[in-house]
């Protein structure tokens, strides 16, 4: 019964979407705003990667919100799991195999480096702070796989998160001070294509990278069950 109702409703919904989608033809250039970004992005921001230019400069405020959302996720995550009963599990997790542990130890610095590379070059090539941060977090995931009992310092993670978040805002406020607009690109834009160019974009991306890295690591850390053991029924 429920299924039939659900399907009926969804059919109506799909029909509605079908009707409205007609006015959005597929694969045709149609937006004024997007064209503007493509045409003037490099000139305006000094970043080769237009998506980065949009994310951090034209719509930097969205990104601030986005960073906040991620911050929130970690916060909420740890709030919800905060009062969890800490149970000592009887059986220690099986130690990882030799291949895994050696391989991970070997890979860890490279992955970390790759993550850093990605967010530093966010304005030049595909990638950026979020992606880089995710890569960094995966490095820590490897690390945890090898040493499940390792206790990471949650305090320092939290500090890094909030400091880098604050740095983002402070850069924004500096923009307000020097350039009259919040988050305005007040630093010299340099020559597009060079590493040190595009004003505040790389700077912000570095902070975002650090922040996202530590946040995702925090989430992984929690989900790995460091201080909340698996429930035994």
């Amino acid at each position: 019964m429920k299924k039939i109702i659900a399907i009926l409703f969804l059919l109506v919904l799909s029909y509605g979407i079908y009707l409205s989608i007609n006015s959005i033809p597929f694969g045709v250039s149609k937006t004024k705003v997007g064209n503007y970004y493509n045409l003037n992005g490099v000139k305006d921001t000094g970043a080769n990667n237009i998506v980065t230019a949009v994310v951090l400069n034209y719509r930097g405020f969205d990104t601030l919100g986005e960073v906040t959302v991620l911050f929130l996720a970690v916060l909420g995550f740890s709030t919800i799991l905060f009062t969890m009963k800490k149970k000592k599990s009887d059986n220690m997790p099986t130690p990882p195999s030799l291949i895994l542990s050696i391989g991970c130890k070997f890979l860890f610095p490279f992955v970390l480096l790759f993550g850093i590379y990605i967010f530093i070059h966010g304005h030049l090539s595909p990638g950026g702070g979020f992606q880089g941060g995710a890569v960094i977090a995966s490095a820590f995931l490897l690390f945890y796989l090898v040493k499940p009992s390792e206790k990471s310092s949650k305090k320092s993670f939290q500090l890094i998160e909030s400091l880098s978040g604050m740095a983002f805002i402070v850069i924004g406020i500096l923009g307000l001070v020097f350039g009259n607009y919040f988050l305005s690109n007040f630093l010299p834009k340099g020559i597009a294509g060079k590493l040190i160019s595009a004003g505040i974009i790389p700077l912000i991306y570095i902070f975002i990278g650090i922040k996202v890295g530590s946040e995702l690591t925090g989430i992984i850390d929690r989900l790995m069950g460091k201080n909340n053991e698996k429930q035994v029924k």
């Binding site: 250039s29 937006t31 997007g34 990667n49 998506v51």
Partner: peptide, 20 residues
């Protein structure tokens, strides 16, 4: 929408805003 090498035509780049 990335000017990773010179000579790319911005007219045929996809819209960067949805990507953002």
């Amino acid at each position: 929408p990335i000017f990773s090498k010179p000579g790319l035509n911005p007219k045929i780049m996809v819209d960067p805003l949805p990507q953002a």
